[in-house]
Design a protein around this nucleic acid. Structure first.
Lengths: 234, 234
DNA sequence: GACGAACTCGTACGTTGTGCGAGTGGTTAG
DNA sequence: CTAACCACTCGCACAACGTACGAGTTCGTC
């Protein structure tokens, strides 16, 4: 009888049970998301994989390189719509929101992304699709770059600040409302000389943190897109 | 919420020739500007002050607190014009440029600023003056916060990315043109599948790095301010 | 059974932030 | 003049880190 897939025993793939770069990256991602940059060490990561610390170095050259892989992984999670499926304006909005929520899912990103260039495959794909989207909007050749860069910078800048405050809340251990009210209290005590600041802090508390931050994000993104709209060539 | 370094009061008078917090901050600033975050260690800093490493800890509780002081020092360097001296639009432009150049002077800032809240005295002053400036523009009460936040986020986001590429050039050791052309070469090799990226990279080289980055910054800031302009209540 | 490739990992080195406690010089009270 | 006290300095030590090194183990292939 002829041998079938089922009778043939597996041989090619697994030599023995072994670490893999994918596995390392995935585990590191979980660790990083949960504990932040300070919580990721090669020893801890190895322990989570039931491996010796230095075993990782066979699969990944250095810790920095590992972080590069993780960053590119995040870029891979971001949607950039095709230009024909939506107008550029709503496409850009969608892109912005997708970028924001990816960073919120991986709040360690701002801490590391500004120290290295992003040239991984997912970063390239993201850039390509973004340029296509903005290109279809009718920007002039040079302005495609500028427009897309502005949007990315705005989004990353805003969400970086957003993540910073969210992490403060998380690390404080206390509840969100409690933290906000303590912030207010401290700011009021400190800022008697700064009436505008004081009002601002007070104003910020009428809604909960999450919708406040979202409004913040949307307001500026809308304004920026309005400004960009006037720059498309007719 | 954790107590920050500004809420704790300082002890009293010095007696003999002694280290001082100001001196430590100033020296740390120079070290950080010159060598970046990785180049600042308590031991190196102490050595520059001809002191023992642990002596610093009498003047500054932890390294993180020291960095908080340094960040606030940077906020203190930023100009925010009075609203009556210029229209809000040119005032906001001036503010944006001042913020940008401060970060360019202290390129380590993006690496650390997103990991902590800014509540030092200079941050407060900066916020206050900013709110006054934007308030005079005629934004509604809630939108003052939003508008100023958008501008800050855009500027910080843009300049953070800018600093990242500038630092890449600096650390590469080679000349600027050489670095740019190497980047191009690498990108072309890598991005045959990504025609829009490739064009974009090619386009970016027609001017030198510095004016390219400046144009980049100005373009987005102008667009954002245009968008905000339409939101001031009449 | 021998060989080489593909991995694993214990040990070790240098560097980091910082707690601890002993020391030192200056001012002040008795 | 001595003693107490404060403001300050600093050597030592520890735990944690990234990672170089080289010896060890498990394979598939002759």
């Amino acid at each position: 009888m002829r041998e079938t897939i089922w009778t043939r025993e597996r041989k090619a793939a697994p030599a023995r049970e072994t670490l893999s770069r994918e596995q390392i990256v995935a585990t590191a991602m979980r660790l990083l998301d949960a504990e932040g940059v300070a919580g990721l060490s090669m020893r801890k990561l190895a322990a989570k994989l039931d491996a010796g610390a230095t075993s990782l170095y066979w699969h990944v050259p250095t810790k920095d390189d590992l972080i590069d892989l993780l960053i590119d992984e995040v870029w891979g999670e971001i949607d950039v719509p095709e230009p024909d499926l939506a107008g550029w304006r709503s496409g850009a909005l969608l892109f912005g929101h997708s970028l924001r929520s990816a960073v919120l899912r991986h709040p360690w990103l701002p801490e590391v992304m500004y120290t290295r260039p992003s040239v991984g495959p997912n970063a390239m794909k993201l850039g390509e699709r973004g340029l296509v989207l903005f290109g279809a909007a009718g920007f002039s050749d040079q302005e495609v770059d500028l427009a897309m860069g502005s949007v990315m910078s705005y989004v990353l800048g805003t969400v970086s600040a957003e993540v910073a405050t969210r992490e403060m809340v998380r690390k404080s251990g206390s509840s969100e409302e409690r933290w906000v009210s303590e912030l207010l209290e401290q700011a009021e005590a400190r800022s008697t000389d700064y009436p505008a600041m004081q009002q601002s802090v007070r104003r910020r508390i009428v809604t909960d943190l999450d919708t406040g931050l979202t409004n913040n994000f949307v307001f500026g993104l809308d304004a920026l897109l309005d400004g960009l709209q006037t720059r498309v060539k007719k």
